[in-house]
Amino acid sequence: MNGTDLTQTRRRWLGVLAAAPAGALADAWAREADAPSMRFLRAPETGLVMVRGRMGGTGRRFNMGEMTVTRCAVVAGETVGHGYVAGRDKRRAEMVARLDALLQMDGRRERLLRELVEPLAAAQADARATTARKAAATKVDFFTLVRGEG
């Protein structure tokens, strides 16, 4: 994998992991019993990110309001793992950082992508599909009969 591909793949796994349930992340970490020892580069910390929108959905930016975000960084040898997750769950941010470090290691990446990231991504796609199906069930065709007042 070259640098650009790796960045794209890493972007994806960080997004998938950030949306994963805490239990799934903890279980995945527990399965990596032979993981190298890691120390905190930045202990889990909760803060705020100001969420931005665009005027009219497409125009200039504006600040809408903040959201809570928790981040963590761990280091294993030369490898630094980062976790950035919405909300205040410090353990979840830590798990994402640890798994991010493992996913950057050549010997583990392929297996973890296959056994952890892809199944999580599939579950997230399923949840999206369920929402889309519920929305589709409420799709209406209005027939214009008589003009209403106002």
């Binding site: 803060g47 705020l48 990110v49 929108g53 809408m64 959201m67 975000v69």
Partner: peptide, 11 residues
């Protein structure tokens, strides 16, 4: 009481 990490990309 919380630190500000920064600004998001526009949604």
């Amino acid at each position: 009481t919380l630190p500000r990490f920064g600004y998001s990309e526009p949604v």
